[in-house]
Computed example of a mutant assay.
Amino acid sequence: MSTIRTVGRSAGVLGAVGAVVLVATPATADNHTATVSVLHGVPGTPVDVYANGERLIDDFQPGTLTDPLELPGGSYDLALYPADAADDSGDPLLSADGVDVPAGANATVVAHLTEGGEPALTPFVNETGSVPAGQARVTVRHVAAAPAVDVRAGGEPVIQGLTNPNEETLTVPAGTVNADVVLAGTDTVAIGPADLSLTEGSTTIVYAWGSEDAGFELAVQSISGQQSAPSGVPGGTAGLADESGLPLPVGAAVVAGLALAGAGAVRMARASR
């Protein structure tokens, strides 16, 4: 199986982080707006999401991915509080203040755990470029409280040493790929094996999130219509947790080049409790 591989190993940040939930309408990004989705990947921690001091998502449950949101370009303050906190009082669990939201961006912001189990907020830029005929693009993002892993396809490593919060991308022939995830440098299977169906001309983004104590979960986001230059509108899935029960590494067999881009300085603050 021939692959085109793009690799990224940087925990960079994107200015779109502050905009995650301002407009709960389907995204049709143009040169005045950004397209942003939000994934809640912190186990056991429902949150309320605030932007510019207004509560925008109430009781946001772990394992939930919002539909793509169309947001005007601008500057935003974002804060995540424990669910049912009284009017954003007290210290936020996570915050990003004075964040620029670049018009035209397509991003997913992920609230998740670091390798060491600390809450973090990481934005990723989603690739929306065209995919060659007969091919599919897959991105795997490691946002779980877990050490480095290798990803194998058909028993052979295709990604080595993937760490939190990074991603890698492969462009592969459309079809079904059987993959598993092993601890880096070993044959010890952490998740899988499992099959991942890859549709021609699409990008499948797989998120490995969770922790050993709470369990590792698989979240999947899809961006379709990339056989030719796309409009930049992602067709994401609203329900994040994988209902099929497939293990985490499913998507790990094909991963997409780290699309983290510093389109603005994001300050992430974890509250003291």
Rank of each mutant, 00 (worst) to 15 (best):
72 P>N: 12
57 I>G: 05
69 L>H: 12
201 G>T: 00
212 E>T: 08
142 H>D: 00
192 G>V: 00
39 L>D: 00
29 A>S: 12
67 D>L: 14
213 D>H: 08
262 G>S: 11
15 G>P: 00
173 P>C: 06
215 G>K: 03
99 V>L: 11
37 S>D: 01
215 G>I: 05
1 M>H: 13
154 G>M: 01
30 D>K: 02
137 R>Q: 09
142 H>K: 04
58 D>R: 12
210 G>T: 02
198 L>Y: 00
270 R>Y: 05
73 G>V: 00
144 A>V: 04
215 G>M: 04
29 A>G: 10
50 Y>T: 01
226 Q>P: 05
212 E>D: 14
161 G>N: 13
124 F>N: 00
150 D>Q: 05
99 V>Y: 04
149 V>I: 11
200 E>K: 04
150 D>A: 00
57 I>Q: 11
236 G>H: 15
3 T>R: 15
188 T>K: 06
111 A>H: 05
117 G>R: 03
147 P>W: 05
242 D>I: 11
261 A>C: 09
146 A>I: 09
226 Q>G: 07
270 R>V: 12
94 L>R: 00
150 D>S: 08
67 D>Y: 13
261 A>R: 12
184 A>L: 04
77 D>F: 02
106 N>H: 14
239 G>I: 15
35 T>M: 08
237 T>K: 15
177 V>T: 07
90 G>M: 03
65 L>V: 11
88 D>A: 14
261 A>H: 08
103 A>M: 03
36 V>I: 09
208 A>Q: 06
9 R>V: 09
204 T>D: 08
84 D>T: 13
186 T>H: 01
196 L>C: 11
198 L>E: 00
263 A>F: 13
94 L>M: 01
63 G>N: 01
144 A>K: 05
245 G>W: 04
16 A>K: 08
24 A>V: 05
272 S>H: 13
109 V>N: 02
204 T>A: 07
199 T>Q: 09
18 G>Q: 01
189 V>A: 06
37 S>M: 07
84 D>E: 12
5 R>N: 13
203 T>N: 08
206 V>G: 10
102 P>C: 04
27 A>P: 06
157 P>V: 04
57 I>F: 12
246 L>S: 14
66 T>E: 01
218 L>T: 07
205 I>L: 03
257 G>Y: 06
120 A>E: 13
247 P>K: 15
203 T>G: 07
3 T>L: 12
239 G>Q: 15
268 M>W: 09
247 P>E: 15
